[in-house]
């Protein structure tokens, strides 16, 4: 049998499984697949054959293709900006709608809830968090992480709070820490709030009716090709309230015409509701 190409592999995968990676950025998806080939010892034909026959294998494949790096309070600057400039403006609202698109294992979901609590706004929080990867959604829902690996983020929390709220609750107020079994777990008053869903940003319609005040989508767009990036950002634009904000990763930007729909301030992109007046 002739070996199929990466493109053919992705096309077949999209036909025979629920997952469509065809519009992911060529180079990065090829590198991901190359890595899977090296680690599994299977070639593309064999990978495809297994994926078509075995639904669990597909989930594992999705887990290996997607990148699930995240951390608590990643890029302190952006959290400082949210706490100081974005969240206070939402205080008079009845509900604060937040969507974490590509939430991975959920650390940023809890970072956000902690800041809302420090502003006494937790009772207004209406949070949804989604990811294409079944496994990470489950971890996110549990809010349980290895302690040693994540202990450094306690320093991040303390540093951030020393800047924005010196009398903030200690980290232990939010997480139960069990050093012996190397675990830390977000407390129930946090894990009870978000609605976690498995959702593929690329293939599926948005599963929510409400609009959002804040959409987090951090280091997700960098894995998509330019056309797909524009398509997804348009959806975000439609799903944001006027003056709602989209939060991206520290070194990714908006490309194409959607760029004019937002006002950029660092990693925070504010929906520019007047764009259609100037956009001609």
């Amino acid at each position: 049998m002739i070996n199929i190409t990466h493109k053919e592999f992705l096309q077949e995968l999209s036909k025979q499984t629920p997952y469509d990676f065809c519009d992911y950025s060529d180079n990065s998806i090829q590198r991901r697949i190359h890595r899977i080939i090296q680690e599994s010892g299977l070639n593309l034909n064999e990978l495809l054959a297994k994926a078509t026959a075995d639904a669990d294998f597909v989930e594992r494949l999705v887990n290996d293709i997607t990148v699930n790096t995240t951390e608590l309070f990643r890029n302190q600057d952006v959290w400082e900006y949210l706490y100081t400039n974005v969240m206070p403006k939402l205080k008079s609202k009845k509900n604060i709608n937040v969507w974490h698109a590509g939430c991975s294992t959920g650390q940023e979901v809890y970072s956000n809830l902690i800041l809302l609590n420090e502003l006494d706004m937790l009772d207004k929080a209406n949070v949804v968090a989604s990811d294409i990867n079944n496994w990470v959604v489950k971890t996110a829902k549990d809010g349980e992480y290895p302690f040693r690996f994540n202990a450094q983020y306690i320093d991040t929390y303390n540093q951030l709070m020393s800047k924005i709220k010196p009398n903030a609750n200690p980290f232990e107020y939010y997480f139960d820490i069990d050093k012996e079994s190397d675990k830390m777990k977000a407390k129930n008053f946090l894990t009870d709030i978000p609605k976690f869903v498995k959702h593929d940003l690329v293939a599926e319609e948005m599963p929510f009716y409400q609009k959002f005040d804040i959409i987090f989508c951090r280091n997700v767009l960098i894995y998509f090709n330019p056309e797909l990036q524009v398509k997804i950002v348009r959806k975000f634009f439609d799903k944001l309230y006027d003056n709602g904000v989209l939060i991206l990763g520290s070194h990714e930007g908006l490309h194409g015409f959607v760029k004019t729909h937002f006002v950029k301030n660092g990693m925070v992109y504010t929906k520019n509701k007047t764009f259609h007046l100037t956009y001609k």
């Binding site: 180079n27 990065s28 960098i222």
Partner: peptide, 21 residues
């Protein structure tokens, strides 16, 4: 290379960043 990103050089002389492992 920015902090906390891998930096790849592509054939069209653009940079791709990634937060993979």
């Amino acid at each position: 290379a920015p902090s906390n990103y891998h930096m790849f050089i592509e054939i069209d002389a653009t940079i791709s960043l990634s937060t993979e492992e």
